[in-house]
Every structure is written in C-alpha cells, then in structure tokens.
C-alpha cells in the first residue's frame, strides 16, 4: 500500500507567495507548474522559484511533482534541470502522445541525475495524456519505463482534440476508462482531470463521486478549497470502515495463529478482499485524524 494520492494541488510556478505557503493546505501531492500557469516572460524566473521551493524544509515530507514544459519547447530541458536538481519526486510530462515521449524524457532525467549526483532512478515520471493519440497509446505509455509512477488525464486539450467540449462527463468516459485500465495493468496510479469551475462545489463532488467509482487514485486540483471536499468524498463510510476493520483484524489473527486461510463469520476471505480492506483503512485515517 503506497501513500495516499487523492489530491494533487497545482501551484503556479511564478507565484512566490503560493510557492512559499502551499504546504499549509496539506494536499497529498503538490504540483509546481512551469507550463500553462506561467506566462512566457516569467518562465526563467518561475523555474528558479520552483528550484528553491523544492528545497524548502517544509516540503520535505510532502510529495512534490513538477510539471515541465514539453521537451520540444525552449523551456523543457531547462525546467527539467531545475526540477531534478531541486529534488522533485516526480516529473509530470505534459502532452504525452506515445511511449517514445517518455523515453526521451527518461534519457534526459538519467543524464541530470548523474550530473548532479542524485541517486539513479530516484526521479519518477508521470505522463499527462491530453490527446486522442495519448489515449490510444495509454497502455504503451503506462509501461514505457520502470520510472513510470502514474498517468494523469488532462481534459482541456483532450476535448479540443476530440472536437467536443466539457459537459456531464460522457465526453471523457472512454479516455478515463482507457487511461485507468492502462494504469491498473501497469500497476501505477491514475489521476483524473482538473474540474474547471472552482465555484461549482456540487458539480465538483458529482465528478469526484464518478471518478472514485471508476477507480481513480485522485484528481488534479487548482483550488486549495477543493482539497477537503475531495478528501471527505474519498473517505470511506463508517460502515465500510467497521467492516474493513473486522476483515483486517481477522487477517491479523489468522497470521498470528499461523493459519493459511482467513475467515470471518464462518466465511472464507480472499487475499484481494484483505488488501482492499487495508486500503479503506488507509483512506479513512486522515479523515479521522482531522475530526
């Protein structure tokens, strides 16, 4: 069971105030954005802000993702230098269309790790899929590199590519399922799109319920206010927690007693059910810790 990754909060890389304080919102992961949130004239300055923010002690206990500019722009490679050297846990590559995009990135990451003395392989990769081509190639992308950590679907460019627009979610249905299957097959995590309207809590929660049901690990967020909404929505119900506790207790008891089979109320419990129960308790933890 890896750490929880429900919320990935986007912070514009050019915003010094938010970079210095975003850890107070306690998202599961924080994403420093050097791409779309940063104006062309601020690319150089944002890169340095992010580099120094990555090294802040306050961020050492939180998962740090940096979204770089695509490698075929004048900024991509410089962003990557800053992110890898600064200590980003994960590089998010935008506009990933095929496995070769990830492999090109992998070569550069390896070179920088070596140059700056960072442990080889310690920089993980997240591919953002934003096109029909990316969705069709999702499986190849998800399995393109041992560094692959997760896939994120990005809705804005994708719906443009598909000649449609954001609506009730049906427009993203195939992409969500496709990306999610690729991720589960490759045993990596999957993140859903940003919800565009920060004032529509009802719409947000509806979308969260849908992606939770589909099986996403979490969602990209652009407003810190949405973190708590999301975490609460992802928290299991009390009944689910009680049931999971009973299953986990039974499993622990079986292990103590050296029994090969877990049973609860006279019925056998399969290993995947035990794993699922552990996941539910993990999800429940922060919600209880808060209350």
């Amino acid at each position: 069971m890896g750490r929880l990754r429900r919320s990935m909060l986007f912070i514009p890389g050019s915003n010094a105030a938010m970079l210095s304080t975003a850890f107070v919102y306690r998202p599961d992961s924080i994403l420093f954005d050097l791409e779309d949130a940063v104006a062309l004239r601020e690319k150089d300055s944002a890169r340095l802000l992010v580099y120094h923010a990555l090294r802040l002690p306050a961020y050492q206990s939180i998962e740090k993702v940096v979204r770089i500019n695509p490698l075929d722009t004048p900024f991509g490679n410089k962003d990557l230098e800053a992110a890898v050297r600064g200590g980003a846990d994960i590089i998010r590559l935008p506009k990933t269309d095929c496995a070769a995009d990830v492999q090109r990135l992998e070569v550069e990451v390896e070179r920088i790790e070596q140059a700056c003395g960072r442990e080889a392989g310690s920089t993980r990769l997240m591919a953002a899929i934003e096109s029909a081509s990316g969705v069709v190639n999702a499986l190849a992308i998800a399995t393109s590199s041992p560094r692959m950590d997760s896939i994120a679907l990005a809705g804005f460019d994708y719906v443009v590519d598909m000649q449609t627009q954001r609506g009730d979610g049906i427009e993203l249905f195939y992409a969500r399922c496709s990306v999610l299957h690729a991720a589960r097959f490759a045993k990596i995590d999957a993140f859903d799109v940003v919800f565009p309207d920060v004032n529509d809590d009802e719409g947000f929660l509806k979308e969260v319920a849908l992606i939770k049901r589909l099986g996403f690990n979490g969602k990209s967020l652009i407003n810190p206010r949405q973190i708590e909404l999301l975490h609460n929505a992802f928290a299991p119900t009390e009944e689910e927690v009680r049931r999971a506790e009973r299953i986990v207790e039974a499993a622990e008891k079986a292990e103590r007693e050296g029994l090969g089979v877990v049973s609860l109320n006279g019925r056998m419990v399969d290993a995947p059910v035990v794993l699922n129960a552990q996941r539910i308790l993990e999800l429940a933890k922060p919600a209880y810790a808060r209350s």
Binding site: L19, S20, H52, A53
Partner: peptide, 11 residues
C-alpha cells in the same frame, strides 16, 4: 522568504 529572494535575484 529566503528562497524567493534567492530565485528573484538570480533571475
């Protein structure tokens, strides 16, 4: 913060 000062001066 110090980190912002460093970054802005460098840029």
């Amino acid at each position: 913060l110090d980190c912002a000062i460093r970054a802005r001066v460098q840029a």
